[in-house]
Design a protein around this nucleic acid. Structure first.
Length: 269
DNA sequence: CTGCAGGCCCTTA
DNA sequence: TAAGGGCCTGCA
């Protein structure tokens, strides 16, 4: 077991931040994380005002897998200090509220599949689709090859709707070696975005999510209907990251804003 | 019954 | 290049 004391890590916030869909709450203070062909349980506790997380993992696995996965080598305090400097009330409130969110380093292919599924969809149903995809594939997240091997009844039982066709087309170009995931990892943000958008069913919003969560381009800034609402409501329709000198961490800023607004909405319901 | 959920594709002008 | 219809599914 490995313990982590940090105010800038909160598994509960990460689990509901909408960037990952395979973290399940299994008890009031325990979450089960499935990722990178492995899994780990994490318990969140408060001792004397300090937030402490217990990872049910060996030190070796923690160092090798979970430390990089949760981006724990990066000091988020520096990012937060930069947000304080903007003196932007809404941004600071959002950042304080979602202090424990981090941009995870998730598997690229899983992010492509997950965010294609996310379009015109809600989080519970996205999670349900992804769980079913793993269920019909011996519990493992399906590869592009696996997608092409599923029979139509199996795949249809996942209830992907019109997104099923998108995922089959994407799987095809990857299996046929007309699209290389490894190439994407070497590209700049702008080039990767352009390349991602050649995939059938991947538009600007989904490509930005993949760039942010699958390629760790922290400057990717996905704008969805929620972000549009936030920008209209709090910024009169115009939000310029470069004005605040936050362009290189736009993705983290987006997560704070998104998480904050979504939480306010949940509270009102 | 209608409307909508973290869009995208395709067609038209 | 902009605008608008259609799309699977599930839930209110």
């Amino acid at each position: 077991m490995v313990s982590l004391i940090s105010e800038f890590f909160d598994i509960e916030q990460i689990a509901s931040s909408g960037q990952c869909f395979r973290i399940d709450k299994i008890d009031f203070d325990i979450w089960h994380v499935y990722a990178l062909n492995g899994n780990v349980q994490i318990q969140k506790k408060i001792y004397n005002g300090d937030k402490i997380h217990l990872f049910y993992s060996s030190q070796e696995k923690f160092d090798k897998i979970w430390n990089p996965y949760f981006d724990l080598n990066v000091d988020y305090k520096i990012f937060q200090q930069r947000i304080y400097k903007t003196k932007d009330e809404y941004l600071i409130a959002a950042m304080q509220f979602g202090k424990g969110i981090r941009i995870l380093r998730q598997d690229l292919w899983e992010m492509i599949v997950s965010f294609v599924i996310s379009q015109q969809n809600n989080i519970p149903r996205i999670k349900s689709c992804i769980k079913k995809l793993c269920d019909i594939n011996d519990g493992q997240f399906p590869s592009a090859e696996d997608f092409l091997k599923f029979n139509s009844n199996q795949l249809h039982s996942v209830k992907l709707g019109y997104r099923e066709h998108y995922l089959l087309k994407i799987s095809e170009v990857i299996v046929d070696k007309k699209f290389f995931l490894e190439d994407l990892k070497r590209m700049s943000y702008v080039t990767a975005l352009k390349h991602l958008k050649t995939l059938y069913g991947v538009g600007d919003k989904v490509a930005n999510c993949i760039a942010l969560f699958g390629l760790h381009h922290m400057n990717a800034f996905p704008v969805d209907v929620w972000m549009k609402k936030i920008i209209n409501k709090h910024y009169n329709g115009n939000f310029y990251l470069d004005k605040y000198d936050l362009k290189d961490i736009g993705g983290l800023v987006q997560q704070y804003m998104f998480f904050y607004e979504r939480s306010l909405k949940d509270k009102n319901q």
